[in-house]
């Protein structure tokens, strides 16, 4: 449905997007992840024909964004980072305008407006001035505008920013309902967002593609090892933290022990295992055999956050390694 090949977008000084290629199948929800300034918005703007690419191609529903922009635009619903709203308009008036602009006929417009007002739950404010709405409602009106013409492809730039948790869940449900018939790309900083609603993730950093995979694969890829949180109770300075740490490090299969906290006589450690080793039982035995009180032991999942940080950090150190190489060669 969406096919991007070798896409590069250069601004006057910066290269915002650097040779990115990816494909999105029909009906998928894809999460677009990356730290600030990674080039998410820029990529989306190219896909929506707002900006032309410097080089490379982008194809939506079989139409090239540069050769057939009108055809592409007809099939895309776009929610920009700041919802494009006219403060002097009322909600329904605005939706009528947006809908007509996107080619909905005069006969259908009222029905469509009512539908999206319902779907995005903006019924309470339908006759209010947009300028007087709260941020969350503006976001929803922006979303309503994006789906009003029932587009094949939805491109949403941070659709849940500024929403309260309840609204986030509602939007998540809405997106789930929309997926299937629509192809959705959404960018976000909230990783749980991606875990919950996306099937695939595209991670970019500093304009470069870092990873593109399904959420499950991505978490598995980095979850070869196990992480365990342990809490040991201490009284009268016994056991002392370094002693516990040393003892834990000696457990077979342990790769790393991190002291997290020592408060009110409770020592908390995070222990990571070597690839493919199960260490929970052994850790528990060690603590108990040493005569300490084991007050908690639980597995810590490696979250998408960790993966995200690992991937983008790897990219960064990789880049700096490259930068320093010539210097090292000189020495």
């Amino acid at each position: 449905m969406i096919k991007v090949e070798g896409l590069t977008k250069r601004y006057a000084r910066t290269v915002a997007v650097d040779n990115i290629s990816f494909e999105v199948e029909k009906g998928q929800i894809v999460g677009f992840l990356g730290p600030n300034g990674a080039g998410k918005t820029t990529t989306m703007r190219v896909l929506t024909c707002f900006l032309p690419p410097t080089s490379g191609t982008a194809n939506v529903a079989g139409f090239d964004v540069q050769d057939h922009p009108l055809e592409v635009k007809r099939r895309i619903g776009y929610l920009p980072e700041t919802p494009p709203l006219y403060p002097e308009m009322e909600v329904r008036e605005y939706l009528r305008f947006a809908g007509r602009l996107k080619g909905i006929s005069a006969a259908d417009i009222s029905r469509r407006v009512d539908e999206v007002v319902d779907r995005c739950a903006v019924g309470d404010v339908r006759d209010r001035l947009i300028g007087k709405l709260s941020k969350g409602y503006r976001q929803r009106v922006g979303l309503a505008q994006a789906i009003i013409h029932n587009p094949d492809v939805l491109i949403l730039d941070e659709p849940t920013s500024g929403l309260d948790p309840k609204q986030i869940i509602e939007i998540r449900e809405l997106l789930k309902a929309l997926a299937g018939e629509h192809t959705i790309i959404l960018s976000t900083h909230i990783l749980s967002e991606v875990e919950h609603s996306c099937e695939r993730v595209i991670i970019i950093n500093a304009g470069k593609l870092v990873a593109i995979d399904s959420v499950a694969n991505l978490t598995n890829r980095l979850r070869g090892s196990e992480a365990v949180a342990v809490e040991v109770e201490a009284a009268d300075g016994r056991p002392n933290p370094t002693e516990v740490q040393q003892r834990l490090e000696q457990v077979s299969g342990v790769s790393r022990v991190l002291m997290k906290d020592s408060k009110n006589g409770r020592l908390t450690f995070e222990i990571e295992s070597l690839q493919g080793r199960h260490i929970r039982a052994e850790v528990a035995r060690t603590v108990v055999n040493s005569g300490w009180n084991l007050s908690e032991l639980r597995a810590v999942g490696i979250s998408l956050e960790d993966i995200f940080l690992q991937l983008t950090a790897a990219e960064r150190t990789g880049a700096s390694a490259k930068d320093t190489e010539p210097e090292g060669a000189k020495k």
């Binding site: 920009p80 494009p84 996107k102």
Partner: peptide
């Protein structure tokens, strides 16, 4: 930023 609505509409 409303120009984004106009320029991304067909």
């Amino acid at each position: 930023g409303t120009i984004e609505l106009l320029l991304t509409s067909p």
